[in-house]
Design a protein around this nucleic acid. Structure first.
Lengths: 339, 339
DNA sequence: CTATATATGCTCTTGATGAGCATAACTATT
DNA sequence: AATAGTTATGCTCATCAAGAGCATATATAG
């Protein structure tokens, strides 16, 4: 079955590792960014060294910890990006960019708090700086209704499959009965990329010598900060993944200090999912989950009643359950005329 | 930040593509397997050709479709495997296995029905042949309580962190309040691998010249069919992913024929998740979901009342919602003393 | 002591989910 | 044709999770 395969020039592939380091600080979700080759912000990346690294994960931990003095807690593989056209940063990793295809394995790592800054030329940035349309905490960003949707609708109309495009747009931007689904961050970014609504789209097409979209390029100036290579796509992947994960894994505690109030926890969740929660109900669900325990102590903020401090309970080391489409399993007695 | 990185010998990495082709046929979940180099069943794989393939996905579609005449519908990247020690099949992909590290990008693809067999030396096999402990449709496999758990407990006791191991085991095999979580297929396989309960564990350690576990190797003879390289791990990843996905994406219809009865649908879901569902409630949830529509026709099986035929409704092209940890968003009026 | 600002406690309503009884609609048999 | 056996469907109940929002409790700032 595979013997029939020709043996391509395998040596022309290079593997890089990318890591989205995320944290929540000052009620703000942040990512560690470095300066890319042309000054554009980039996600930390390094080459995968097959000799030194027994595992990708070990590789990521190694160079991240060595270069940032951050000790990574949670770490998870995101996706492996291998599209042609992401060769841009090739020059940074190899001496012969012309013939090499670079693929990169993206990772998501969570760090507790910025703990001051360490690494030179790296800094923590709000991720909403790169995705202004993803922050609904105050309210729906006006950018969406005023700029993004009109432009996307316009783009949809120009395509050969306007209906399909319209459906994708509606689904991604919460215009269906499902409403806004925060975990679709990647879908949204991809639509915007395709429609030429982000700077990268123009940059990449120009670099590839492709014909430019018939859209208005100036729109891409107001849709957030550009990143090097396809790093913004990787970041979108990370955001979407983390947002989704929050719902079925107790991963949020990887971002919390040892002690925290329920409001701290709520703010952290809100920072990540990008919208506000119902306070009383949030508390109820958290307390019922059994994931946290009162420490007994409490803290006093500026004014108002002091808040009780909580810590992660042991049970939280275990992951949590899932949910979804409704799979009604049989629980009680195997009696009755079942089946 | 990454300038500090030494430039390793990047050329010693080779990229392969693996595809788990899954289908449901005759109420049985199946995967396409080929004969591995030493006769062991393997998952179809091929080299990634950076020249010919603009994208991994295109690469996978290409060689799968060329070699099996199967047209892939749904396809999704699973995970990229890069651990040292998976060099075993290197000889198949390169002429110089000694210095090359092979990493492979795993994909999951869903095919409708086996549609007869096509490719030479490839065949569809029940995936429970490789994971007998994952099939709870009739009842909990006795293999778990009689063989697996005792052996795992034994293994846990031999380690330096028995409590941690015991917790992992309890969680993976449904011995916690969460019960059996079908999507933890990979967790279970990995535990068994670590404990030397699957043949691959012994094979790999022997090949690597490592010391063999102090466990009883004969146990690995009753824990399902062995696969080449780390393909069984990849398959476990695919199973877990698909099982989880069913709950929040309408992906099951990728496996159904144009017309189907609700029981057909139920059987397909059961085949995948590995346990039985409550019939009436399953129907209720499916019908309420709006994902299917009655065609008007009905079919008569051997005996009993004829069943109505359904088809996928247009709405199902859209994906479905998700659920999870409980994130109480504010829906109604932003009035009251909220926040 | 009063006005404010948070933290918490609770109640109500609605909808989803787990169970299982009751019927309907066919085929195979007496 | 009446009876059994079998699978499809219809429905009712009970329980629980989730969305809303009023009511109190406990501080800080005049």
């Amino acid at each position: 079955m595979n013997d029939a395969d020709p043996k391509p020039d395998l040596n022309s592939v290079t593997v890089g590792l990318n890591a989205v380091l995320a944290t929540v600080d000052d009620d703000t979700p942040k990512v560690l960014s470095i300066k890319g080759h042309d000054g554009t912000p980039a996600i930390p990346y390094g080459a995968f060294d097959p000799v030194e690294h027994r595992t990708f994960e070990i590789g990521v931990r190694n160079w991240v910890e060595r270069q940032t003095s951050l000790k990574l807690g949670y770490i998870e593989q995101l996706y492996t990006f291998g599209d042609k056209g992401r060769e841009a940063p090739a020059a940074l990793l190899t001496n012969d960019p012309s013939t090499t295809r670079i693929i990169s394995v993206g990772y998501l790592a969570l760090a507790r708090s910025p703990a001051e800054d360490r690494a030179q030329n790296s800094e923590w940035r709000t991720w909403y700086e790169f995705f202004p349309w993803e922050d609904w905490r105050a309210s729906e960003p006006t950018l969406i209704g005023e700029t993004i949707l009109p432009a996307l609708d316009d783009w949809a109309g120009r395509g050969e499959t306007p209906t399909l495009r319209a459906e994708r747009i509606a689904l991604a931007f919460g215009r269906t009965s499902l409403g806004w689904e925060e975990e679709r961050a990647l879908d949204r970014y991809e639509l915007m990329y395709e429609a030429g609504l982000v700077h990268e789209a123009w940059r990449d097409r120009r670099a590839a010598g492709l014909k430019l979209p018939s859209a208005d390029q100036s729109l891409s100036d107001v849709t957030g900060t550009t990143m090097a290579s396809d790093h913004r796509r990787i970041l979108a992947t990370a955001i979407g993944r983390l947002r989704g994960k929050l719902k079925y894994r107790a991963v949020i505690f990887q971002l919390m200090a040892d002690q925290f109030t329920l409001l701290d926890l709520q703010k952290a969740v809100e920072a990540i999912v990008g919208f506000s929660l119902h306070k009383q109900n949030f508390r109820r669900s958290v307390e019922q989950s059994g994931l946290v325990t009162k420490t007994g102590a409490s803290v006093q903020q500026s004014s108002g009643r002091p808040a009780a401090l909580f810590k992660v309970s042991d049970a939280a080391r275990l992951d949590r359950a899932m949910k979804g489409l409704t799979i009604p399993r049989v629980k009680r007695s195997p009696s009755a005329k079942q089946s």
